[in-house]
Design a protein around this nucleic acid. Structure first.
Lengths: 344, 344
DNA sequence: AAAAACTATGCAAACGTTTGTTCATTTAGA
DNA sequence: TCTAAATGAACAAACGTTTGCATAGTTTTT
């Protein structure tokens, strides 16, 4: 009992009119008489006719599909981001073609190829950690497929991107600690060259100098974010000459590892030493010693905003297809925000 | 400098041969002479020709796209699942169109419609928590679009599905506790009517009776999985007539809430009372008192297996398109497995 | 030497739409 | 009453492919 899907052709045949009339009737084209229009629309409803998107889009050279490439779906940050992307896309009648690079450049390139073959209308990308060369992205630009990067952004000129500014969040974090009376504040930062680390450091310096606590480089320790790295960083801070009473950790996981190390060293958490971190994972509710506060990076909103930006680009493109774009590039920066956890 | 993508038509023109010859040459059709074949393939490479998937698939009435509908991408379980799905699909040259229902039936229906319009080849679905009526799925069956359900499965006959059996995992969990010397073992279960709860209970009863500890209904408490629900359930167990020395919790989050409640009641964790749970989230590494063990439900593998099953169905369908299928339905059950955490 | 078989290629239809152009009819203006 | 304008609908091309069938040229077979 195979049920073939109805086409405009069939409607045309049943009504003894031409295909084009049916098409126009369904689109409320003014040239079609009211009577015919009604008849067509009624029959279409009766047959449960649905236009074959594929045919339409093929005909128009569009797909209404957005390709999304991100490193790891199972990371909390990215799963929130994709959630935001998907919601925004759905709202604008786009659908999401998904691929994960697993932080592997080759996979990233392959995905780019696959998506190009699928003729996605546009791309949303958070680049793999290991991407140093960006040829593959630049190559794509020539194909005139709009791309918007988010969160992890390649260092190439003339791209659109959405990112979250960590500087102000860091400032907020330090001010929060300052108000609580802390004067010696340490930081466990990520790898030195990582952009994310740089922003945190910048915020740290800014806030410290503004609070007239001068910036002491010994209070900032870089680490590789592995558990052992975090532990030794923590140790270094807590055994240093000027022992901090509070530590800003690179993210919630780092904070938890650091807490553990501090406890091993017999420090009393929230008494001898306090922690503040980034990410604001729900995880914090479940741990014995969650950070006092955490800087939210709004992954969902980043995804959403990036999607909206991309769709805007797509619509602009189909309106004025001639000029690639007038040399303007979106650089959208969300502000991070310190979320203070309930202290029960 | 708009770069139009090359088509076989252009190749044909440049080589002064017909379109069909080009097409066949690219597909290594035996009827094409070696010389022509070489020339075509060379030029294709030079022009960086890529077949327009859209055109191909439209022509063949296929899309090589799988629609995936699941409740929440930001839940750890589903983000792992989608990861498995995406990997498996990529391997078989399919792509994933993604949608989340947010546990809302209306959204679920809309997605189903969107995906039908997009003419996805098949569907992978984990139903929304609130789906009670399944008309929309049954309607889809008539359109002959293969569907495979996973994890959350509707109660309708004649469907394909992949699920994870929680019974044996529960048995393993109880046996593990038994070996550790526990004789009074409680359970914090989910809502009574939830299939997931039923399986856990079944495993519990099975294991308890086999261990010749008879089944005591007072030791099993249902709850709504909210924090307050979990707390009162914990309290009830720990103040009951027969106080358990170990508790099996519905999942890791429940376990952590229960731990907190137990500590509030001045119980010493892993001494007065032990916990075992389900999900095996990495979260456990970061908490002060992780459950001793956790039953892994293999979301990644479920996603993978479901995808493989769907693709198998798709291929079968295109081989013998006549018979819908000979009345056989895949019911694939993965076995859950108890993962014992390192006790450091 | 004619028929059969094979090789290499081209033609054209088909997939389901949209849309510019043309055609036929009706209506209105003079 | 005749022409011009407006209306309603059909024709046909196009999007990029695949593929059944036809055709032409070459080789083999008898």
């Amino acid at each position: 009992m195979e049920k073939r899907l109805p086409t405009i052709k069939e409607i045309a045949k049943q009504l003894n009119i031409s295909i084009s009339t049916v098409s126009r009737a369904l689109h409320n084209h003014p040239n079609i008489g009211l009577r015919t229009k009604m008849r067509v629309q009624q029959l279409a409803k009766d047959l449960e006719y649905e236009p074959n998107q594929n045919a339409v889009l093929f005909q128009q050279g569009k797909t209404h599909i957005i390709g999304v490439i991100l490193p790891e779906l199972s990371e909390a940050f990215f799963s929130s981001a994709i959630s935001g992307i998907e919601d925004a896309a759905q709202k604008m009648n786009y659908t999401v073609l998904l691929g994960q690079s697993h932080d592997d450049i080759e996979k990233e390139k392959n995905l780019l190829d696959t998506f190009r073959k699928h003729r996605v209308d546009g791309l949303l990308i958070s680049i793999s950690k290991n991407s140093i060369k960006y040829d593959h992205f630049e190559a794509l630009q020539r194909y005139n497929i709009p791309m918007v990067f988010f969160d992890r952004i390649p260092k190439i000129p003339n791209i659109h991107y959405v990112a979250c500014n960590m500087v102000n969040g860091t400032v907020e974090a330090i001010n929060f600690l300052f108000k609580k009376g802390h004067r010696i504040i340490g930081m466990i930062n990520g790898p030195e060259k990582l952009p994310a680390s740089k922003e945190r450091l910048e915020g740290y310096i800014q806030a410290m100098t503004k609070s007239r606590l001068k910036y002491d480089p010994n209070l900032v320790v870089n680490c590789d974010l592995t558990k052992t790295g975090v532990c030794s960083a923590t140790q270094k801070l807590l055994t240093g000459k000027r022992r901090p009473t509070a530590i800003v950790a690179f993210n919630d996981y780092v904070a938890l590892d650091a807490v553990q190390q501090a406890r091993n060293m017999k420090f009393k958490i929230n008494q001898d030493i306090c922690f503040v971190s980034y990410a604001n994972l729900p995880i914090s509710n479940y741990t014995a010693y969650p950070p006092l506060a955490s800087v939210e990076q709004f992954p969902y909103q980043q995804g959403q905003k990036a999607t909206e930006t991309l769709i805007e680009l797509l619509q602009k493109k189909s309106n004025e297809p001639s000029e690639n774009n007038n040399g303007t590039y979106y650089k959208i920066i969300l502000e991070s925000q310190l979320m203070i956890h309930d202290s029960k």
